[in-house]
């Protein structure tokens, strides 16, 4: 049977998404959050002994029933296409493979965080993480 749908609620908007935030890659290199590229995440995961990158495809985006400030994004995660729903602030950025930061409401993301952002859409493939020793 398919795995159960999980709903994860991340904390409110974290400070590291603000433009200019300094991010340390796995090899020690420092980059600004707005300068991160797909390769930075892939190479960091390759170095990491604990983490691996999964592809998470956006399958559906809905408004939240609890608050207009939130959206529910349904992902199909990894090779097993596990269904996972995440309730996030509409301005919460996800990193899309080959594209960069994207959110349900990029105008709000740019306004609140000054982070350049595109519109997150169904079919986008986002970077997500898994523990290597999970299975």
């Amino acid at each position: 049977p398919p795995p159960p749908s999980n709903t994860v609620v991340p904390p409110s908007l974290p400070p590291y998404f603000i433009k200019g935030s300094i991010i340390q890659l796995a090899d020690g290199e420092l980059k600004r959050v707005e300068d991160l590229k797909t390769e930075d995440f892939i190479q960091s995961a390759e170095i990491s002994s604990e983490l691996k990158i999964d592809s998470s495809t956006v399958e559906r985006i809905e408004g939240s029933h609890t608050s207009p400030n939130f959206a529910v994004v349904q992902f199909s995660v990894g090779e097993h296409r596990a269904q996972v729903s995440v309730e996030v602030l509409v301005e919460y950025p996800f990193f899309v493979f080959g594209q960069g930061w994207s959110s349900c409401c990029p105008d709000r993301t740019t306004q609140l965080l000054e982070l350049p952002c595109t519109k997150l859409s169904v079919g986008d493939v986002c970077i997500s993480l898994t523990l290597k020793n999970l299975r």
Partner: peptide
Amino acid sequence: VPVFPWHSLVPFLAPTQSD
């Protein structure tokens, strides 16, 4: 200036129960 590790920017989306 705070420095954040790269993995804090990436969500863990894998379900807790697999297969």
